[in-house]
Amino acid sequence: MNDDSVTLDSADAPVMGIDETIIKIDDLSFSYDLGKTNTLRNISLDIPAGKVTAFIGPSGCGKSTLLRCLNRMNDLVDTAKVTTGKISILDQDINAPDVEAIELRKHVGMVFQKYNPFPKSIYENVAYGLRVQGIKNKGVLDEAVEESLKKSALWSEVKDRLDSSALGLSGGQQQRLCIARTIAVKPQIVLMDEPCSALDPIATARIEELIAELRQEFTIVIVTHNMQQATRVSDRTAFFYLGELIEYADTAKIFGNPSKKQTEDYVSGRFG
């Protein structure tokens, strides 16, 4: 990387106070086929730091696509393209030519819909993100692994079998391990793409508790199908429909007194 390139290093990054905008999405349109059809259309949205923001909406409304724009996971699709607008995270345009997606992802972590720990040991799963950053010091790794596992409420369950395969854990444990893995690299933002959709209600409750814990330290953006979940975990809610942002407000307002008809229909279960 050349010296001019912008990296979102935590030392340089401005410290965000609560309620300050950490992600600024401005008139964003996004296409999966080089601009022929836009999957997302003219979305403008400011996400506050230190809060949980939920994206809701029926299937195919673009909420996951928008989430994957935030850490540029859509780069993996050859024909994906931002057609208009821009996304700024910590006041940096993340699609600027000198931004390295790898560096961005160290600051914007992601938890996926289906828990996907690597077929490695529990320890190695959590240490992975640090290892790829070149950290080899066993002491540093040990500490980071323990801290992350504690934060994701998994430590007491796995501390005696850190060297056994992660695939031997239960589904809910595996998803919490994925969260531990994500927060081990100390991102500022954690994106969660329907993190509970593959879990049973008890495991879901534990993840929700965990989200409540983590909001103190991270800005969380969560995509969910489950409207009760949105009301339970989020501070702000954005409702999407057919690639457009319909309404974005405090969660209480969206579910209690929405200003748009479409929102009301959706949250009251009339469609979706």
Partner: peptide
């Protein structure tokens, strides 16, 4: 999912 997870961790 494995490669996505790895890339999302900044690898």
């Amino acid at each position: 999912a494995y490669s996505e997870a790895s890339l999302a961790l900044g690898a």
